[in-house]
Design a protein around this nucleic acid. Structure first.
Lengths: 201, 201
DNA sequence: CGTTCAGTTGACTAAGGTCAATTCCCGTGG
DNA sequence: CCACGGGAATTGACCTTAGTCAACTGAACG
């Protein structure tokens, strides 16, 4: 179902896509792009990242990715399912410098803008504008995390699934159920049964 | 078991307690205190807060409090159990201006420093130092939220309980179990059974 | 065609929820 | 000092739902 992926991006296309994601004036966008590296990833490509700090972040300009951990039984646990406009990486590790066990896999052909912590911190220190931007990023990260807490704390797996359908139908329809189930905190079998229950009702 | 609460606080005591919580130079502490209001609360005192934005925050200098919601059955759900040094309020609502349904109840006699959003934003805009401080606060809020997600996502209720014993024995021993159980995301009955299981093992 | 892997289904287990009864604890008033 | 009242905590019986392990189905791909 995924539409054909763009294999060539012009600087102008990257700039306007980024502008649509982080709404800043053109010269600020260019400034930000000066610390970024653009990269394409094929579907199913994995970025393994074991036992060191996550000292960079990526912004998904296009495509989809999962950020996941591997549990003691070798099973994947999908911590995040990200789509166009979302960030990939481990922001907690990025901030604290603590090691991260997160890996990334692209679930669709994807285009990503990467920047690393050193350059980002330098940008933030260069101008109060960018410091305010950095606060804005952390504010958003907090709000997103709080929303995830609310889902895990207040809702049942079934309600979380219904929520995801409503809020992100693109994810539901483009991503294998086994990835969705662990994101919801359940097994693929349980998701299958939840779907069955919902159809019968 | 709670030790006798202090009923009178000198300006010096407030300042040094705050300094121990947010590690800033003395003149910055004084600057921050200029937007704060100090208040004492008795045990079990409730701050009801229904259907409007949470436009202030509090810093617990002493005591303990729960931040909670009331579900559709009228049951309390304890979202946060906070102790000395922690913040009380709803930071997401504070940031976004969206309405909050959180209430606060003090579980021990408590001393709190309050500040409101208008003054805080003004402080942040007055100096890049305070802007950086604001980012630091959001960073911390995010890290805390991420830790809560990890507990809810990766751990069973039993593991969460064991974690809480290890990380916050003060909470366990000073706060009624019915409050601890809903914080863990389970009923008081289930917490009672978990405790029984653990004793037998 | 087979191979492979995602998804479904069945049988059984484990754990938390619900409702109700009982016990424990503690403070208060007689 | 003791008896009582009320809320917290525990326990029992039963229900619901997710986990586990295994078998089976079905679609995609070479």
């Amino acid at each position: 179902m995924p539409r054909k992926s763009k294999l060539v991006w012009t600087a102008q296309q990257i700039e306007s896509k980024l502008q649509a994601i982080i709404n800043l004036p053109e010269y600020r966008i260019k400034e930000f792009l000066s610390i970024c590296e653009f990269k394409l990833h094929s579907k199913n490509e994995i970025i393994y990242h074991y036992e060191h700090p996550f000292d960079y972040l990526g912004i998904l300009l296009h495509g989809a990715a999962r950020v996941y951990f591997v549990d003691e039984n070798g099973e994947d646990l999908n911590y995040l399912l990200q789509v166009e406009g979302d960030a990939i990486g481990d922001y907690a590790s990025f901030l604290t410098g603590e090691i991260s066990k997160a890996h990334i896999q692209f679930l669709l052909p994807s285009a990503v803008l990467y920047f690393n912590k050193k350059d980002f911190d330098q940008l933030l220190n260069s101008d109060p504008f960018w410091l305010a931007f950095g606060k804005f990023v952390s504010d958003k990260a907090f709000i997103n995390a709080k929303n995830r807490i609310d889902e895990l704390y207040f809702l049942t797996p079934e309600q979380r699934y219904l929520n995801l359908i409503k809020k992100a139908p693109k994810i539901i329809h483009n991503i294998p159920q086994k990835h969705i189930s662990t994101y919801l905190g359940i097994t693929p079998q349980s998701l299958s049964r939840i779907r069955k229950r919902l159809i019968q009702a």
